[in-house]
Computed example of a mutant assay.
Amino acid sequence: MPEMPEVEQVRKTLAPHIEGKTITGVKIMLDRLIKHPTPEKFIEGLVGKTISHVGRKGKYLVLETAPNQQLIVHLRMTGALIAQSSEQPAPAYAKIRFDLTDGVTMWFTDIRTFGTLYLVTDHDAYIEGYETLGPEPLSAGLTLAYLAPLAAKSRKPIKTFILDQHIIAGLGNIYADECLALSGILPTRQANTLTQVELVALIDAINAVIAQGIKNRGTTFRDYKDGEGNKGDNQNHLLVYGRGGEPCKKCGAKLCTTKVGGRGTVYCEHCQK
């Protein structure tokens, strides 16, 4: 599933191609991807509107299409927004086509079709999850003063705790494993057992891991592509994720695998305490 670095890379690569362009037509090939309003009103509300800005909030893309209107896209597992010349054929798994001025077409593609799109006008929809996102990595809101009281009240494993989008927005399974490895914290540790020193190390690791993911244009193991259809490179720089049974890059010990909150988890039992 695309996490904050992947969605940010989509935003960065998509924006130059679609900002300032007017939507001249919309074709929906799979109605159930449109969660608000109806597919008919979705099309009606977008045609003639100009995309003034491509933003992001957590794992959501936010396209400003009018002063009081946003097209909010949640890519979920395999969704992608790709801009290309209108002369090019549709990409694989194309589900929605947005025709834009100046010969540009934006496609929403989705292999597993779990993605969701919302056209919100005058705050006429409440999007579960989107409205209650916590502070993001690399933001001024992610501080020890913010995180310590929440961790102190939680008996959840620390990996489950930091995956909660209400607590920290943008982290998913890949980057949770990575930041816990970098900070030397066992993913199964109860959140309320972490010391302030460990929480500071965790916050620093979260910021470092997310910054690295953005620098490396996201992580691609199979499906993820950016707004120009290109893959990321961060998979070549991971400490633990996807490396179960391989040597730890810090100590050389064999990396362990387990399940935490139902999520596959890789860690080093020597380096993470």
Rank of each mutant, 00 (worst) to 15 (best):
H123R: 15
T160C: 11
Y60V: 05
C268A: 09
L147N: 12
L194F: 14
T132H: 13
I82N: 02
H53Y: 12
K159Y: 07
R11A: 01
E64A: 14
T121G: 00
T132K: 15
C251I: 09
P2M: 03
G213M: 00
Q84Y: 08
I174K: 08
T109V: 10
E246D: 11
A66T: 02
A94Y: 00
D102M: 04
N207E: 01
L75Q: 13
E128Y: 12
N173C: 09
G172E: 00
P91Q: 07
K21S: 09
P135I: 10
K27G: 03
E228H: 13
T257E: 07
Q70K: 15
L171C: 12
L81C: 13
P37A: 02
I28Y: 00
Y175L: 09
I34E: 03
G227C: 11
T257L: 06
G264D: 00
T65S: 08
E44F: 04
L117A: 09
H166E: 07
R32V: 04
I51R: 05
Q272I: 07
Q9M: 02
T143P: 12
R222G: 01
A140W: 00
D124V: 12
L142S: 15
T38E: 04
T113W: 03
Y93S: 10
T258I: 03
M4I: 15
K35E: 00
N234W: 06
T143S: 12
A94W: 00
K254I: 11
T38M: 02
K95N: 03
E6K: 10
E3F: 08
L117E: 05
V62A: 00
L239A: 08
K21F: 04
E136C: 13
W107F: 15
E40V: 15
L239W: 12
T258N: 01
Q212W: 07
H53T: 14
F98P: 09
K249V: 06
I96Q: 04
R112F: 03
D110Y: 05
Q9G: 10
K225M: 08
R56S: 04
P247L: 06
K231A: 13
A205G: 15
G134S: 10
Y126A: 14
K231D: 02
K21V: 00
K95H: 03
A176I: 03
L100N: 05
A176C: 06
F108N: 02
T13M: 06
A181G: 09
Y130T: 10
D124E: 03
Y126T: 15
T188G: 13
T257M: 09
I96Y: 08
L81G: 10
Q9V: 03
E136K: 12
R243Q: 09
D223R: 11
K259V: 05
K215A: 14
Q84N: 02
E8W: 01
Q84R: 11
I18G: 09
D177F: 08
T24S: 14
P91R: 07
M77W: 06
L182R: 14
K27H: 05
I214W: 10
A148V: 10
Y267F: 15
N234Y: 07
D226K: 11
V266G: 06
P89E: 12
L194V: 11
G55R: 08
E6L: 08
C248P: 12
Y241E: 05
E40R: 15
L138A: 09
E131L: 07
Y118D: 03
I185M: 11
N216L: 12
G141V: 11
H36K: 10
Y224I: 08
M77F: 09
T101F: 06
T195W: 05
G184F: 04
I96R: 11
K49Y: 05
K57I: 01
Y60R: 05
